[in-house]
Design a protein around this nucleic acid. Structure first.
Lengths: 354, 354
DNA sequence: ACGAATAAGTCAAAGGTTTGACTTATTCGA
DNA sequence: TCGAATAAGTCAAACCTTTGACTTATTCGT
């Protein structure tokens, strides 16, 4: 059974192809009788008419296809929700996603853009698996948006996490529970995640009066569990007054748990731990569950595509803004209440021993 | 600068559009003079000619677009490599990937297939984030392949992991290192991963003479670290002779570590542990690193797309086979050598002390 | 020197849809 | 009852590429 075309429907209804086209495009009102509209729709349904996106796009010079340029999004366990949300948002508005993996390198992105042009893609979204700057080529299509990444070379609608505000949520958890001796382990890096989360930590330290905050920042050369482990050992061995360790991400936090336990201490009774990213493999897998912050991957993907389609459909001329989106605090069991400062703790524990 | 078309090139070279088309399609040999070919290619380059995939596909009724129907592939941390490999393989042969997320439900898949038909997709690959059967609709396009999933309703080229053989690799590691008291923790399920890996365990038990193997299979109701933890506690508390625990996947293995350590034992000195999946967040993050098996996600994605394109291009009529692909043993530090069984161990260690 | 073969291209239709400009028939107002 | 307005469609070109069938001019063999 060959695919039905407008011509097939026209033949069966004894009208012209134009009429069928108009009707099925929803532009029949006032031009065609209600009866005819009914009939045409009926026949279209009977024949299983599906339309031909290629012919349509070719003629109208506008396709309902979006190029999704991914920098590691699908292949790493971090940002999968971004692509899911993008797909859902696109589908909701009748668009499809052309997926292409690229390097964060102008030439690689350029190649992908050219490829998308061959498809007459309505627009492109550039998305990355972690929040960083893109090496953008000289020209970007007018309809371009970025998700979880940004460029300083062009003015583009951009959707990124609100790093400072997001980590503040988990820092508040710690501050409000009375911790005063808090350490921060962060991957030494110039990426926004590193610098902004550190600023968030420093701000929280000031807000809650955390002691020696700047000496309690431990810089690691990577964000692995191993690095988290080593950093925590040093921190805790040097300074036994620390009651909470905040990690730049969940992988480091995993290492924090390991070090804490190896030192014969307990999470959260002896040391509270906070992570960032909500990598569920880790945050749900650790015992006790890790309190952390889920990055707004889903939201970024969804909003980016929504914006892109608005742009394509001209509803929304040229705003070109950067949107910072808040993550969500995911509370599990890794943060405990501190009742008093050092001196009183002794009294307290002595009391419980009795 | 509008996109250049064949007509633009034809105008600048004073030949017909047909000629330009032929030349750029590489069919100029013998029909056009070498000089002309040279000229046309030069002008095409100068104008930045990119071709119009829509027009081309419309005319020739064959597109270079593949529909990638994903069941959780991008959104879960397991199988990302599959989509990357698919993309790479497609690009290598000049195809693009139309990505769509679907449910494992005939109607959802049907909708996606219809959508792909609107794009005149050359073929589709159906891929899943874990190895299981697809609820296939009544009709599948002739050019359909499956990756990490399968159907019994249709005859389709299928690429799945060789579950038994894959887990055997890690079981061999354990067997060859002298373990005789080995437990297996597996998610109670009818999925191939569960049943086939269990068969693999039983086969290894027979091969290496593991004792009481069937009593040492612990069925869990989920594959989480928590379940792994609980199962391991029961196992180890009941039976202190166990020297190795094999988990059905890395998440369970994470729980095994937790239980082992909480019982005051060490991995691998007291209890060796093996996982499955090589979820690096876990397998690299645990201390010591987890010996596990990487599933052939990359290979499945690559081979599936290769096969699909062969199918589309007719190089390869109708073989319709199921290909089982071996995973790769990833050796880390979680498996130790056992020198002898109970009685002799004493002798041996006595010997070495001397 | 004539017919056949070869080289170098061209012609024109087709693929399915969209859309601004028309047409034709009917209805309405005065 | 006439001209205008409205309703209900139709026309035909355009989007860009592909391809089997042709054409025209030159060369070759004998």
């Amino acid at each position: 059974m060959k695919k039905a075309t407008l011509a097939d429907i026209a033949a069966r209804t004894n009208v012209s192809i134009s009429t069928v086209s108009l009707v099925l495009a929803g532009k029949g009102e006032g031009r065609c009788s209600p009866d005819l509209i009914e009939t045409i729709q009926g026949v279209a349904r009977d024949l299983g008419y599906r339309g031909n996106r290629l012919a349509s796009a070719l003629r109208s010079q506008k396709s309902r296809t979006i190029g999704f340029l991914s920098i590691g999004v699908a292949t790493r366990p971090y940002a999968g929700q971004l692509i899911l949300a993008a797909q859902l948002a696109a589908k909701r508005r009748g668009y499809d996603l052309l997926f292409v993996e690229v390097e964060n390198e102008a030439s690689s992105i350029q190649v992908a853009i050219d490829e998308m042009a061959e498809h007459l893609a309505a627009g492109i979204v550039i998305a990355a698996y972690f929040h960083h700057e893109i090496d953008a080529p000289d020209y970007l299509p007018k309809a371009t948006v970025m998700a979880n990444c940004f460029t300083t070379r062009h003015s583009v609608d951009t959707f990124i996490p609100a790093e400072r505000e997001s980590i503040s949520q988990v820092l508040d958890e710690i501050g409000l529970r009375g911790h005063k001796n808090v350490a921060f382990i962060v991957h030494r890096t110039d990426y926004p995640a590193g610098t902004l989360r550190t600023k968030g930590f420093l701000a929280a330290a000031k807000k809650y009066g955390w002691q020696n905050a700047d000496q309690r920042i431990s810089l690691t050369s990577d964000s692995t569990a191993d690095e988290g482990y080593e950093a925590t050992r040093k921190l805790l061995l040097n300074d036994s007054s620390i009651t909470a360790v905040v990690a730049f991400n969940d992988q480091l936090a995993m290492g924090v748990y390991q070090a804490v336990k190896e030192l014969g201490l307990q999470v959260p009774e002896d040391v509270s731990v906070a992570g960032f990213d909500d990598l569920q493999l880790i945050s749900e897998g650790l015992r006790p569950g890790l309190t952390t912050v889920r990055l707004p991957h889903f939201e970024m993907g969804e909003m980016a595509v929504e914006k892109l389609i608005d742009l394509c459909e001209g509803d929304d001329e040229l705003s070109k803004a950067t949107h910072e989106i808040l993550g969500e605090l995911v509370t599990r069991e890794s943060i405990a209440q501190v009742y008093e400062r050092a001196t009183s703790v002794t009294a307290l524990s002595a009391g419980s021993i009795n």
